[in-house]
């Protein structure tokens, strides 16, 4: 076994000092060593997107990075999306439009959508579809996810 290294992950503004085995994926470190289990694992090989988080504000698959690579980086997960008791517009839109059933894919979709809407607030419907096709959902058939993200986009744009 290789030696552990001490790193600091800044997750949703809070520093977590952890001693990691370099082979631990970022997803495992966040879930099992920082106690933030909102980020899910659906495949661990990059295809489902359930593990999507924001690293330095870009949406990435946390199963395809090692925890050690995120030392000192700014990480945002679904747990940090709401502002206290106030839902993020995307969370609100997901609830109101029934964009989740089992909810397993939801954190990944929320973080993917957050990342893209922050980067491209004016993104077109087609481009949004293209981005949202990055993640898999087995329950909803996607129609309500698309609807919810479009509504949140329009709301966030109007509010800014």
């Amino acid at each position: 076994m290789s030696d552990k290294k001490d790193i600091t992950l800044t997750i949703n503004g809070r520093d977590h000092n952890v001693s990691v085995d370099p082979r631990w994926t970022l997803a495992d470190v966040i879930r099992d060593h920082c106690g933030q289990t909102g980020t899910h694992l659906g495949c661990e090989h990059g295809i489902c997107g359930a593990c999507t988080i924001l690293v330095d504000d870009s949406p990435v698959r946390s199963c395809l990075m090692f925890g050690i690579q995120a030392d000192g980086k700014k990480i945002r997960t679904v747990e940090g999306l709401a502002n206290g008791d106030e839902y993020h517009p995307l969370q609100r839109a997901f609830i109101e439009n029934h964009a989740l059933q089992c909810g397993y894919c939801t954190p990944g979709f929320l973080m993917l959508a957050t990342g893209i809407l922050e980067a491209q607030p004016d993104i077109s419907d087609d481009d949004l579809n293209d981005v949202l096709s990055s993640n898999l959902c087995r329950c909803t058939g996607y129609a309500n996810i698309i609807k919810a993200v479009r509504i949140a986009r329009d709301e966030m744009k109007a509010a800014s």
Partner: peptide
């Protein structure tokens, strides 16, 4: 580039 994988994979 838009044909390569997906948006989050293209970030890395």
């Amino acid at each position: 580039v838009s044909n390569i994988a997906h948006y989050p994979i293209r970030q890395r």
